[in-house]
Design a protein around this nucleic acid. Sequence first.
DNA 1: TCCATATATCAATAGTTCATGATATATGGA
DNA 2: TCCATATATCATGAACTATTGATATATGGA
Lengths: 110, 110
Amino acid sequence: MDIKTAITHFSALAQETRLEVFRLLVKAGSDGMLAGDIADALGVRQNTMSSNLSVLSNAGLLQSQREGRFIRYSIDFENLSELLSFLMEDCCGGDPEACQAAIDKIMKCC
Amino acid sequence: MDIKTAITHFSALAQETRLEVFRLLVKAGSDGMLAGDIADALGVRQNTMSSNLSVLSNAGLLQSQREGRFIRYSIDFENLSELLSFLMEDCCGGDPEACQAAIDKIMKCC
DNA sequence: TCCATATATCAATAGTTCATGATATATGGA
DNA sequence: TCCATATATCATGAACTATTGATATATGGA
């Protein structure tokens, strides 16, 4: 991951509708959700949602797959992994104990 | 953490100089670095760096501490933890196995 | 082929953000 | 007290971003 890509990722998350979409899809897991259902769930107009989905998708945070007339979006966990690894590269001055403590703090999810 | 705070965090990271500062301070670990040394290390003018440091600091991503004429900045790991937990809340539809796999992918750092 | 539905794109306006130069504040030392 | 150094703040113009209304594209079904 280079810094430009990382900035694109964070910019994509730095907007209310898109961050809500991302969190909704994190909760949805690998099944993802259809574009229209995402828009309905968040009460956002169709074209606004479409452009926000394309920002997240172009950034690489989402994957999409056409299913007939529908398009299904889901989190791209591979890319998310690279982003967070980039952010935490060589963390804590290479001190494994300090580093582990920091990671424990960070990853309380689930 | 509420969504406005999270957006402030991601906005702070969505800019090249600030992302470089953040990564530099991640590498520096709990010792942090002096404001002037950060500016020198990244080749950024003093006032530009000062305002970028205050964006990161106001967002809550950095802590700062005065040492005489100097100010030392370091990562606020507590806040970073909350941000990432917020991002990953209820991840993978509550499926612990899928969730653990995702976390393993994400946290390859160190 | 025609229509309805699902999603994407476009153009324009309004709002936000960035780096810069100038200046202000704060601390330490002579 | 005066000066030098370290950092912060302010005003400005340029660049970027978001939402909206309108419209286009794509797919499936009649």
